[in-house]
């Protein structure tokens, strides 16, 4: 059970934070189809940051700080770096959509094509292969926090084993950030102004709100969160490796956002659900649900009749199938920001 919860969180958290990234852009009136591309780019920047720091021996230079705590700081620096460059990448979308009033779907698609191309181009030049890995060691060895480090090795209860053992600090930082960003969006003046630009920019403008600035802030925050989410995804699920691909996670986040009806709390729930499915797909063979030593899902996949359906292929397509079905059932109720995707034109009424 602990394993199941931990794995679900690992998949759900990047989804959640990237879906929130989508909310910030759409609430300000810009469709951010480029989430996938920004994630890919952010993952690359974060991995490159860690790779270069290891290569130039930052921790060998300062041996007195080479403990697990400073590693966490190092991880957060990587997240900040990937977030900042993700925001810079998202500027391309903002420039096209806000200044040039371009088609947002097309420019988002262009960024989704640009990110893997540029990442693979540089990865091949830097690493001379198709993927950029850590310079030495693996992600778990460098960044994972174990309960012994927190002085909890004697404790062996459910809470400690689930939430304070073998985790990445990034997961909790993201949860915290998710809460903070949701509060900003709903409980502050800035959030209200941002949302008004996605609903009725003309009215917002008439009240003295600078629509362009608000939309740029929306896109930049969106880029920051998505870029950071990309790095967190790479760190926690693929051993800090960048290969110009996040396996459709950005698009899944988009579905989570719509499923969550552009509201943070619903998004958190949807992300956990999708995370559970992703976790089933990745680890169905080693999940022990009720702790009796029987790996039920694995047994089922070997079953002569049930195994025909309940096999890894089925679990892998489940998130997409569910999201399509959910979209089909909730489409009547879903309420997108009214002005999303429409370039702001002052003269329009």
């Amino acid at each position: 059970m602990s394993y199941l919860i931990q794995q679900t969180l690992i998949y759900a958290i990047p989804l959640m934070i990237v879906a929130l990234a989508g909310v910030f852009a759409e609430r300000s009136g810009i469709i951010n189809l480029a989430l996938e591309g920004i994630m890919i780019f952010g993952a690359f920047i974060g991995v490159l940051f860690v790779h270069l720091c290891q290569k130039y021996g930052v921790f060998e230079l300062l041996p007195q700080y080479a403990n697990w705590g400073s590693m966490q700081l190092f991880e957060i620096l990587g997240m900040v770096a990937s977030g900042l460059l993700g925001a810079a990448f998202a500027l391309l979308l903002g420039f096209a959509a806000i200044n040039l009033k371009a088609d947002q779907t097309i420019s988002g698609t262009a960024l989704n094509m640009l990110a893997p191309a540029i990442v693979l181009f540089f990865v091949r030049i830097i690493a001379n292969q198709e993927e950029l890995r850590l310079y030495k060691g693996d992600a778990a060895e460098w960044f994972m926090v174990k309960k012994g480090m927190l002085g909890l090795e004697a404790k062996d209860n459910f809470v400690v084993n689930t939430f304070f053992n073998k985790f990445y600090l990034a997961t909790y930082v993201c949860i915290l950030l998710f809460i903070v960003c949701s509060i900003i969006l709903y409980k502050t003046r800035f959030g209200l102004r941002l949302r008004s630009c996605g609903e009725n920019p003309q009215a917002a403008d008439s009240l003295g709100i600078n629509v362009r600035r608000m939309r740029y802030s929306g896109v930049l925050i969106s880029g920051f969160l998505a870029g950071m989410g990309g790095f967190v995804y790479a760190l926690t699920t693929s051993n800090c490796m960048s290969n110009g691909d996040v396996a459709g996670f950005g698009f899944l986040a988009l579905a989570v956002m719509i499923f969550g009806n552009w509201k943070p709390l619903n998004i958190a729930g949807a992300a956990l659900l999708f995370g559970l499915f992703k976790c089933l797909a990745a680890g169905y063979s080693s999940i022990d649900i009720n702790g009796d030593g029987v790996k039920l899902l694995f047994e089922l996949s070997k079953h002569p009749t049930w195994g025909k359906v309940l096999n890894p292929n089925f679990y892998r397509m489940l998130p997409y199938l569910i999201s399509l079905l959910v979209l089909a059932f909730t489409s009547k109720k879903s309420r997108a920001p009214k002005a999303e995707g429409i370039p702001y034109d002052k003269g329009q009424r």
């Binding site: 096209a96 040039l100 097309i106 420019s107 094509m113 191309a117 540029i118 181009f121």
Partner: peptide
């Protein structure tokens, strides 16, 4: 050369990006 084929994907992406505001 020591370069790789992904640069052509970069070029294609730039062209798509530009075509988003071909009207301009």
């Amino acid at each position: 050369t020591e370069y790789n084929e992904y640069i052509t994907d970069v070029i294609i992406a730039v062209i798509v990006y530009l075509s988003a505001f071909s009207l301009l």
